[in-house]
Amino acid sequence: MRGQVLPEAALVCNFPRGLMEHREVQTFFHEFGHLVHDILGGDQEWVEFSGVATEWDFVEAPSQMLEEWVWDAEVLASFATDESGTPIPADLVARMREADAFGRALLVRMQLGHARVSYHLHMDRPADIAAASDHWYEVSSPVGKLEGTHSYAAFGHLTEYGSCYYTYQWSLVIARDLLTGFAGLMDPASATRYRREILEPGGRRDAADLVEAFLGRPFTVDAYREFLGEPSS
Rank of each mutant, 00 (worst) to 15 (best):
residue 1 M to Q: 14
residue 1 M to T: 15
residue 5 V to H: 14
residue 5 V to T: 14
residue 8 E to I: 15
residue 10 A to P: 00
residue 16 P to L: 14
residue 22 H to M: 06
residue 25 V to E: 06
residue 28 F to Y: 12
residue 30 H to T: 03
residue 30 H to F: 05
residue 31 E to M: 04
residue 32 F to K: 07
residue 32 F to C: 04
residue 38 D to F: 07
residue 39 I to N: 03
residue 44 Q to P: 00
residue 44 Q to R: 04
residue 49 F to R: 01
residue 49 F to W: 03
residue 55 E to D: 08
residue 56 W to H: 05
residue 56 W to Y: 10
residue 62 P to L: 08
residue 66 L to W: 08
residue 76 L to E: 02
residue 77 A to Y: 11
residue 77 A to I: 08
residue 85 G to M: 07
residue 94 A to C: 01
residue 94 A to S: 09
residue 97 R to M: 05
residue 99 A to G: 08
residue 99 A to T: 13
residue 102 F to L: 04
residue 115 A to V: 04
residue 118 S to L: 02
residue 119 Y to H: 02
residue 121 L to N: 01
residue 122 H to Q: 07
residue 128 D to V: 06
residue 133 S to W: 15
residue 134 D to Q: 13
residue 135 H to P: 00
residue 136 W to C: 02
residue 144 G to K: 13
residue 146 L to A: 05
residue 149 T to P: 00
residue 149 T to L: 02
residue 150 H to S: 01
residue 151 S to R: 12
residue 154 A to D: 08
residue 154 A to S: 07
residue 162 G to C: 05
residue 164 C to L: 15
residue 169 Q to K: 15
residue 170 W to K: 15
residue 170 W to L: 11
residue 177 D to T: 14
residue 182 F to S: 09
residue 188 P to A: 10
residue 191 A to G: 11
residue 197 E to C: 12
residue 197 E to A: 14
residue 201 P to W: 11
residue 202 G to L: 09
residue 205 R to Y: 07
residue 206 D to P: 02
residue 209 D to L: 11
residue 210 L to M: 12
residue 211 V to D: 04
residue 216 G to N: 02
residue 217 R to K: 12
residue 219 F to S: 07
residue 221 V to T: 15
residue 223 A to L: 09
residue 228 L to Y: 09
residue 231 P to G: 01
